[in-house]
């Protein structure tokens, strides 16, 4: 009986020790947890310096504020929203998906789409040209007539070549 009692006591102490550690971890957010949010924000004083690496006193205070909000159970989205409301959208690394800031998301896509379009056109042109050249010989004059219809320069070139013959 005494043996069982000491075993139960040991288990109780063991379990309570671990739960207290877990509790401490929940209430005191780690630096990694704080920095995971801080790196999504800019230093309010320095230009373009992420909050997680900025050594200024202002940033140290902001990181402490993040730690406090995390320990109060606030979510990442709520904390980021708080900073945006308090200090303006300029503190966010990611531009807000609203109004004029949409351009930051749309323009790169448009530029890529335009690039793909022009690349496709250029590739199409490059693949056509060898076909025309490979059809040389008996049909050379026919081909040059077709091309000349599109390009004045080719017409002039053909004329010059004829004259030299």
């Amino acid at each position: 009986m005494k043996k069982y009692l000491s075993l139960v006591l040991f288990l109780f102490v063991f379990v309570s020790l671990f739960t207290s550690v877990a509790f401490a971890q929940e209430t005191t957010p780690t630096d990694n947890q704080v920095n995971a949010i801080a790196k999504q924000l800019f230093c309010p004083v320095c230009q373009n310096t992420p909050l997680d690496v900025c050594p200024t006193e202002a940033c140290r205070q902001w990181r402490e504020l993040i730690r406090q909000m995390l320990s109060e159970g606030k979510t990442e989205a709520e904390i980021l929203q708080y900073f945006e409301d308090q200090y303006g959208p300029r503190v966010r690394q990611e531009p807000p998906r609203a109004g004029f800031s949409w351009l930051a998301y749309i323009i790169p896509l448009l530029v890529i789409a335009a690039g793909v379009f022009f690349l496709f056109r250029a590739l199409k042109g490059w693949t056509k040209a060898p076909v025309a050249e490979s059809a040389s010989g008996g049909v050379r004059n026919d081909v040059s007539k077709k091309v000349s219809a599109q390009d004045d320069y080719v017409v002039r070139l053909e004329d010059e070549l004829k004259k030299r013959k």
């Binding site: 309010p44 004083v45 202002a58 205070q61 902001w62 402490e64 504020l65 406090q68």
Partner: peptide
């Protein structure tokens, strides 16, 4: 007099 607290935390 009006003090304006620039990019600060409420606790600070």
């Amino acid at each position: 007099f009006v003090g304006v607290d620039y990019v600060d935390t409420p606790i600070g």
